[in-house]
């Protein structure tokens, strides 16, 4: 899918909460093995949720975009851990940013790819001229059932991207996007259930890899590009192994995905996972670099994007903190504090 008129990223930013828990600490409590899918994961504080983190990322994205927030005409928040079952998060973000009430706003849900669905909607709204700027946010305080495999990786974070017409003000422009979706029940959560369920090995080959690779190949075919044309790549990061394997299967060198590979040190931030990876990649990319991003949401689907970095990256980049500033800002907590912060204890 190519937008009818050229669209680019005007501003971007991420947010990662300060607390971390080591995977080994979770393993210590549950007596599981010594080989963990990541090193440590980000844990939201007790007074943080997907919406507060979305606001943090959105504020930095506006600062980097150098636009009047009143000109943002649409906000879409992708999350599977909304603080309200019914009540939009986007309106809270809009009020916090002082955005005009002449606003399109909705929350998206598609497991870990809800954030990139928001990308596509904003790109389309800007390309059609319906809004001047659109903000897409991926934010999650992901939950894993105590002792379940997911508990080692389910983490918290947010990333916000503002899209506008391609110009000298855009940091990177969109070459195209391609989606691939099927009814694949690899991971789900029923209403009123606090934790998701998943189908172990089924989450790999028929789920993650099939969708990620199909979306990536579909995009490259549509844009007439090869893996060698990309300087960087970002894949959804449920663990350290999957994105590395996806890159290898596509013939993309490991070096190209390293700048955006955050999962070993912050965990799987669900809807924020690939958008945070893209933000970390934009933190290091040079004008002219081409970036492939492929999200994955269980259930299942993938959205692939190709971005080309523009000159504006050089002067806009220092206007907001790099992802590294959040990665390096950390306080380790033990399993007891983690259960309290993430409200796993029932009173």
């Amino acid at each position: 899918m190519k937008p009818l008129s050229a669209v680019g990223i005007v501003g971007y930013a991420g947010y990662i909460p300060i607390y971390r828990i080591k995977a080994a600490e979770i393993g210590r409590v549950w007596g599981t093995g010594c080989k963990y899918p990541i090193i440590e994961k980000a844990v939201a504080a007790i007074d943080e949720d997907a919406t507060t983190m979305a606001v943090e990322a959105a504020r930095y994205a506006v600062a980097r975009a150098q636009i009047n927030p009143e000109e943002i005409g649409a906000i879409y928040v992708g999350s599977e851990s909304k603080p309200y079952a019914v009540k939009p998060s986007g309106t809270i973000v809009a009020e916090a940013l002082g955005i005009s009430s002449q606003l399109l706003a909705a929350d998206y849900e598609f497991a870990c790819k809800a954030g990139t669905e928001a990308f596509q909607t904003c790109i389309a709204l800007v390309a059609s001229g319906m809004v001047k700027y659109g903000m897409a946010i991926g934010a999650d305080t992901a939950q894993g059932r105590p002792s379940d495999e997911l508990e080692f990786t389910a983490a918290s974070g947010a990333a916000a991207f503002i899209f506008g017409k391609k110009s000298e003000e855009t940091i990177a422009y969109v070459e195209g996007t391609h989606s691939y979706s099927t009814d694949t029940p690899d991971f789900w959560r029923r209403p009123e259930e606090p934790y998701p369920s998943h189908y172990w090995r089924f989450t790999g080959k028929p789920a993650y890899f099939k969708h990620v690779l199909s979306a990536a190949k579909g995009l490259m075919e549509e844009l007439n590009l090869t893996p060698d044309d990309f300087d960087y790549a970002v894949f959804h990061q449920p663990n350290t192994k999957f994105p590395l394997a996806a890159a290898k299967m596509l013939g993309i060198e490991e070096e190209k995905i390293k700048p955006g590979l955050l999962v070993p040190i912050i965990g799987n931030t669900y809807s924020a996972s690939s958008p945070l990876g893209l933000a970390a990649t934009l933190d290091v990319a040079k004008p002219g670099d081409r970036i492939l991003m492929v999200s994955y949401g269980s259930g299942a689907g993938s959205d692939a994007f190709s971005f080309v970095v523009q000159e504006a990256i050089e002067w806009k980049r220092p206007l907001a903190p790099p992802i590294a500033a959040f990665v390096n800002r950390k306080k380790l907590v033990d399993y007891a504090c983690y259960t309290r912060y993430r409200r796993k204890l029932r009173k």
Binding site: A96, P259, V284, R317, P321, P322, A324, F326, R329
Partner: peptide, 20 residues
């Protein structure tokens, strides 16, 4: 929801070139 305060998040792009 509302404001609280936290220690300032410091960053310096000059000191953090791309190491990779």
């Amino acid at each position: 929801y509302g404001y609280k305060f936290r220690p300032v998040i410091e960053w310096n792009w000059q000191k953090k070139p791309n190491p990779e």
